[in-house]
């Protein structure tokens, strides 16, 4: 006689085995030249891209059922991959999870509606779009980075010399050590967190309609800072040299404008909200 515990264990095993049986793995390999282009469209599931060792693109895909197929094509230096949903596919059965290796100088273009989008250690252009997808990009340099999400959170970590444009309706945007000639974030209700030093001569424009904006910077930062909230509040923990002229009236508590550090090498920082709060904080240096 089997105990009830053993029966439960066997049932769980059968469910697990059934899930595994429904999943299939697919591997694709493409040879490309320098500065290849890779585009992946995946309605449901995650896409993760990392650098490969040579001029090859390796795609590892896990398909969660037979209601989804993978279409792929190569046209010269350009590779297109698409999850093709078959009749009756839904968010579970249509799910495909991709792990992709590309040459570090490749330009990538990833689209999905749910799941997650991840890219790391690349220096080609990166375009990531996902309605409900969480986005995570790290260790990217000298790249043009376009990100669009609806409510997915965006995390950017160690982006050097980037040309970064992020649009998110309600997802929070968190940036750590992000710098470059242009860093622009626009959100409706998402919170924007920036931790870094605003680089040396870039333009940093962080805007959220009703979300709060929090910038944490070291005391030695050189920047020309303008912060303005139409109906919300602004707070500034760092002494700024006030500007003699601004394009708006500097109403205490609603706006501040000034410079810090060495003006000759400073970046331009514009923090704007309609009804959110803006807080410019000094980073606590480690002892």
């Amino acid at each position: 006689m089997l105990s009830s515990g053993a029966v439960k264990l066997m049932s769980l095993g059968l469910v697990f085995a059934g899930t595994l049986a429904a999943q299939t793995k697919k591997e694709l390999r493409f040879s490309v030249g320098p500065k290849a282009g890779v585009s992946v469209t995946n309605p449901y599931g995650s896409i993760s891209v990392k650098p490969s060792n040579g001029k090859i693109i390796l795609v590892d895909a896990v398909l969660h059922s037979d209601k989804v197929e993978i279409d792929n094509s190569q046209n010269g230096n350009r590779v297109d991959i698409e999850s093709h949903l078959l009749a009756g596919a839904d968010a579970d059965s249509g799910r495909v999870d991709y792990e992709i290796l590309v040459p570090a100088d490749a330009s990538i273009n990833l689209h999905c509606s749910t799941g997650s989008l991840r890219a790391e250690k690349l220096h080609g252009d990166v375009t990531l779009e996902g309605a409900g997808a969480d986005v995570d990009v790290r260790d990217v340099s000298d790249a043009h980075l376009h990100i669009k999400t609806m409510n997915g959170a965006v995390n950017l970590d160690n982006i050097q010399n980037g040309h970064v444009e992020v649009d998110s309706v309600s997802g929070d945007v968190t940036m750590r050590s992000v710098n470059g000639p242009l860093i622009q974030v626009v959100s409706t209700s998402g919170r924007i967190n920036y931790t870094g030093d605003f680089g040396s001569s870039g333009e940093y424009r962080l805007t959220s309609h009703s979300g709060d904006i929090d910038a944490v910077i070291p005391e030695w930062t050189s920047a020309d800072v303008v912060a303005h909230s139409v109906k919300g509040e602004v707070h500034d923990d760092i002494p700024l040299q006030p500007k003699s002229h601004t394009w708006f009236a500097v109403e205490k508590g609603r706006a501040f404008a000034g410079t810090m550090g060495r003006v000759a090498v400073s970046s331009t920082v514009v923090l704007r909200t309609f009804s959110g709060k803006i807080h410019l904080r000094k980073r606590q240096e480690k002892q």
């Binding site: 698409e82 689209h111 999905c112 669009k148 959100s187």
Partner: peptide
């Protein structure tokens, strides 16, 4: 900016992944 965000929502709805 708010109009821009609205147009982005429409753009996303047209995305092939949806």
């Amino acid at each position: 900016d708010a109009y821009h965000q609205k147009s982005m929502l429409f753009e996303m709805a047209m995305d092939r992944s949806l």
